[in-house]
């Protein structure tokens, strides 16, 4: 085995989730039929309950565009998209030397995150399984394109 390029681009959680969905991963009983390995399902199960579950390509592109003025590092932007911080205190841990670089602009950034990135599902209740199924089906139908889109270059 020869590693040609260890870092050929970073992926957001959403992109990985989208990739797994395009392979046929879903949250219902058809999972035994899909060509998805058990280990991939574990990743899917983690991602589908994370902040990535309701994001769309448009959301992320818009966020990337609008956070340019804050001069964040690529890794920080990636981390913000993955975690979707909903308060200033959560940003402090993600952004290095936040106080020095931002001062009061942190609140602005939180607002931007709240406005652009959709909030994650609070909790998938056991009795709400049917609902959840419908939702994932909708998301699947919405963007079936293979996950060969843009990637963030994390190098």
């Amino acid at each position: 085995m020869k590693s040609l390029e260890a870092n050929a681009g970073a992926l957001t959680n959403f992109e990985v989730l989208n990739f797994l969905r395009s392979k046929g991963a879903a949250k219902d009983s058809t999972r035994v039929l899909a060509k998805v390995a058990p280990s991939e399902y574990k990743v899917y199960d983690y991602l589908v309950q994370s902040a990535a579950c309701k994001q769309t390509r448009e959301n992320i592109n818009e966020f990337l565009e609008r956070c340019k003025k804050y001069d964040l590092a690529k890794a920080e932007v990636l981390n913000i998209i993955n975690i979707r911080p909903s308060s200033a205190v959560e940003i402090y841990s993600i952004v290095e030397e936040c106080e020095k670089r931002f001062g009061d602009a942190v609140e602005e950034l939180v607002e931007l995150v709240e406005n652009v990135l959709p909030p994650p599902l609070i909790e998938l209740k056991p009795e709400g399984i049917d609902e959840g199924k419908e939702e994932t089906a909708n998301i699947d139908g919405g963007k079936d394109e293979p996950a060969t889109g843009e990637q963030m270059d994390g190098s």
């Binding site: 085995m1 020869k2 590693s3 260890a6 870092n7 970073a10 959680n13 993955n82 994390g154």
Partner: peptide
């Protein structure tokens, strides 16, 4: 968290 890696394998 996730990265792509390009690999050659025989």
């Amino acid at each position: 968290m996730f990265y792509l890696s390009r690999i050659e394998h025989t």
